[in-house]
Simulated assay, not measured.
Amino acid sequence: MKRGFVTEAHVVVYCDMCGDVYTENTGESICFDTVQQAVDYIQLRAAGVGWIYDGDRIWCDGCIAADHCDRNGHQFPDTWQATKRLLGISTRLRTCIVCGIPEIEAMP
């Protein structure tokens, strides 16, 4: 029987591109007993939330979206959101619907 503080080895999944840790509802990493258990879990469960393992690398949903936009270009909505400043330059903003990267321009 184990008691008290025990150091044990486990597997945690990190994105190969950005280093983000795989989490679910709690925001805490999930600990797996083996790499194979982590691979099986990612392939069955995490694909629904956007993480992909291609047999070599593991990618988070954000990096997949950014890679898509790097290859195909961003997809911005036609409308802009304006921000008016009392002092200084006003700006307008729109956000890519694929990767979430904003495009910001100064307004005359």
Rank of each mutant, 00 (worst) to 15 (best):
M1N: 14
M1C: 10
K2C: 12
K2Q: 10
R3D: 12
F5W: 15
F5C: 09
F5A: 11
V6R: 13
A9N: 13
A9H: 15
H10N: 12
H10L: 15
H10F: 11
V11M: 08
V11N: 04
V12M: 15
V13K: 00
C15L: 06
C15S: 03
M17Y: 09
M17R: 14
C18K: 05
G19Y: 05
D20M: 09
D20Y: 04
V21D: 06
T23N: 07
N25Q: 09
T26N: 10
E28M: 15
E28N: 13
E28F: 15
S29G: 13
I30H: 06
I30R: 07
F32W: 04
F32D: 00
D33A: 09
Q36N: 12
A38V: 02
V39L: 08
V39N: 00
D40V: 00
D40R: 02
Y41N: 11
Y41H: 14
Y41I: 01
I42T: 05
Q43K: 12
Q43R: 15
L44E: 11
R45I: 11
A46L: 01
A47N: 13
A47G: 12
A47L: 14
A47I: 11
W51L: 04
I52K: 06
Y53D: 00
D54A: 11
G55L: 05
G55N: 06
D56N: 14
D56E: 14
R57N: 15
C60N: 02
C60D: 02
A65D: 06
A65Q: 08
A65V: 05
C69N: 02
C69A: 09
R71H: 13
N72T: 07
N72R: 13
N72F: 12
G73C: 05
G73R: 04
H74M: 03
Q75P: 02
P77V: 03
D78L: 12
T79H: 11
Q81H: 09
Q81R: 13
A82E: 08
A82M: 15
A82H: 09
T83A: 12
T83D: 09
K84R: 13
K84T: 14
K84H: 14
R85K: 11
R85Q: 08
L87K: 14
G88V: 07
I89A: 08
I89Y: 10
I89H: 11
S90W: 09
R92L: 03
L93R: 12
R94K: 14
T95C: 04
T95Y: 00
C96S: 07
I97S: 13
I97Y: 06
I97H: 11
C99H: 02
C99M: 04
C99Q: 02
G100Y: 05
I101F: 11
I101H: 10
P102C: 09
P102L: 10
P102M: 05
E103D: 13
I104P: 00
A106C: 15
A106G: 15
M107G: 02
P108T: 08
